[in-house]
Design a protein around this nucleic acid. Structure first.
Lengths: 139, 139
DNA sequence: ATTGACCCTGGAGTATACTCCTGGGTTCAA
DNA sequence: TTGAACCCAGGAGTATACTCCAGGGTCAAT
């Protein structure tokens, strides 16, 4: 059983973040000392690592709470987890598409700008952004 | 000169958003009626369209305020705008790379999961996320 | 006994881009 | 003249994931 500071050091998150995770129902200490200090066990550390890695995979804390819940359920099967992973991957790919569209729109704007010295009044980038009905490249 | 509601209708943003933009220094009405109603001109509509399109290109409101500022400066040249567009494109591409890494990590997790019916205790996805030191695919 | 490092609760603050609400004044048509 | 539709200011609320603070208690070593 370790105190909050030790767990924080072990997992590279702050004490505040651990308390925040507890408030959010993600990780609870295994017990409390007589003085009211939080005491964590090994599973707590596993849960923190789980949270951090899931975040790196793009899951929000709410989704991670759900995953942790599945992880703790006896009747749950691998497919329950897999479904969530696939769903998240689709979300991420959709965001990537949106960002690629932005990147492409910017490319167009940048390449259309022939003369950097031109006064801003004649700037093609500004003009393109002002146009009432966005051209095809901006949706 | 049109009232806020008309401009809102013209540009497909809400009255509240227009007032918010004003508070943020993005668009100010050209004047006010005796009763204190905001009165907008044609340039206001152009500015709103500008804001919306720049948002679609991934610029934040703070960056857009800066772009609008450049747009209004006589001494500014096209290069000032172009530089910002290039910078934004780099930011977006960096985000795309991060999201592709997430997508790839999820792919690995999903493909490693051989048996969907397996109980969650043996779930390879859960296990991978718990591992203390993330594997190569998760950085 | 005291010092410093640690822990506690509860609440506020951060960033972004709005949205909604309260309580009131204005404009216009019937 | 009255009612609907519009406008105003000021402030609070939304989501996300923390971070920081005040004011206090606890623990180990000296």
């Amino acid at each position: 059983m370790i105190t909050i500071g030790k767990l924080a050091g072990l997992t590279s998150v702050s004490n505040d973040t651990l308390r925040y995770y507890e408030a959010e129902g993600l990780v609870s200490p295994a017990g409390k000392s007589p003085a009211g200090y939080r005491l964590y066990d090994r599973d707590s550390a596993r849960r923190i690592h789980f949270i951090k890695h899931a975040q790196q995979c793009g899951f929000t804390l709410a989704e991670i709470r759900d995953l942790l819940d599945v992880r703790g359920r006896d009747k749950a099967c691998c497919g329950d987890v897999r479904t969530r992973a696939i769903e998240k991957k689709l979300q991420i790919e959709s965001k990537i598409r949106a960002m690629k569209a932005m990147s492409k729109a910017l490319d167009q704007l940048i390449s259309e700008c022939a003369n950097e010295k031109r006064p801003v009044k004649e700037c093609t980038i500004i003009a393109a952004l002002e146009r009432a009905n966005g051209s095809k490249r901006m949706q």
